[in-house]
Simulated assay, not measured.
Amino acid sequence: MATWLITGAGGWLGGWVLDAVGRTLADGDRIVVLGRNRPASLRGALFVGADLRDPEGLGRAVRDVAPDYVIHAAGKTPPTPDEEMYEANFWGTDRLLNALRHLDRPVRVVVAGSAAELGPVAAADLPVVEDQVCRPMTAYGRSKAMATAAALVARGPLEIVVGRVFNPVGPGMPESLAFGRFAAQLAAPDLPQTLLAGRLDARRDFVDVRDAARALVALAHQGQARRIYNIGSGHSRTVQEGLDLLIHLSGRSVRIGLDAGATRRGEPDDSRASLDRITAETDWRPSIPFERSMADLWSAASARGGMALPLTG
């Protein structure tokens, strides 16, 4: 019998992690969702209220749950103010690890990292490996890099793995991410005459959010402690390709305009993950093609009139 603890299950990635863990539970295992707010759907899990900003309350909750496995998917993303991202992503992670450390026994912990930790990577260094020197250029990237560093240097009996997620896509994608915003606008009854977009020639490694969730669960079982693992598709595509697919799926006609504010300083021209480490050391492989990810994103967006979950909870 094992107890799984999941943070961020009220968000997009965390919600799919909850689903992925539920699909792999052995008889007698249980899932506990930890957070400030109870998710709309617990999918058979228990809920324990705790705030990552409150060390004492967090410590009590962790002692009560006594987890064997933890997947930490909670955090904040842009356009959250910088100070809140540092508080949630770095300090929240640090407090959770401290609370788990006080259990004074081995616990398998997977921290969800981000490709934003890397910053710009030279074309000659693509596909990027996990040992690439990180030069994050955004507050989000720096806050996630600090969380990764805290996880990897954590002392004690914790067995900590970092899953560095590249660019997740798929159903439920929030409007804070480009394709989620495009899908919501295309699904809305009052479609704008001009759909504003940032750089359409930028290339990204888009991985289906369901594949990313499965990868985090695989790392809980099979990842080596104190290691980073890239989670991506191993290929890069332009933003233009994804937008063209969504427009085709919507059957609507729309002009595309430049949104200068959507381009952030320090974003890379291309981003592509080497999957050699994760495919050699676990049985995980990305299985959902980009075209299906976009089709499922569109189906979900059109069914709900554009509404989506937040990226993290």
Rank of each mutant, 00 (worst) to 15 (best):
N98G: 15
F47R: 08
L186R: 02
L97G: 12
V109C: 02
D276R: 13
V162D: 04
R36K: 13
G92R: 07
L152S: 07
P157T: 07
A301E: 07
M85Q: 12
A178S: 13
A88S: 14
L52Y: 00
L297I: 06
A197V: 15
N98P: 00
G113E: 09
Q240V: 03
R227G: 05
V32Y: 08
R36I: 08
E291C: 06
R23T: 12
L25C: 05
N167I: 10
R164N: 08
R60D: 09
C134A: 15
F290D: 03
S293N: 12
A149H: 14
L46G: 11
V128K: 04
A188I: 00
R237G: 04
R181L: 09
L25P: 03
Y69G: 05
V109G: 03
E130D: 04
L42I: 09
G223C: 06
G59W: 02
A220S: 12
N37G: 11
I31A: 05
H102S: 15
T93Y: 12
L96N: 08
G180T: 00
L25F: 08
S271K: 02
S233T: 15
I6F: 06
G141S: 11
S176H: 02
N230H: 15
E267W: 15
L191I: 03
R292L: 13
A123L: 13
D68K: 08
D244I: 08
R101C: 14
R43I: 01
G35S: 00
D201M: 01
G113A: 03
V111I: 15
G198K: 04
G172L: 01
G261S: 15
A202S: 14
L177F: 15
R38P: 00
L297C: 01
G261E: 15
L249Q: 00
R108Q: 09
P192V: 05
L186S: 06
D94F: 14
T279I: 13
A151L: 01
L311M: 14
G223L: 08
L249T: 03
A26D: 09
T24A: 14
R265D: 15
A139E: 12
A225V: 07
M1D: 09
R53P: 02
D27T: 13
G10Q: 03
A20Y: 06
P189E: 07
L297A: 06
G232M: 10
G28M: 03
D201S: 15
R30E: 14
D27W: 04
Y229E: 14
E117F: 12
A150P: 09
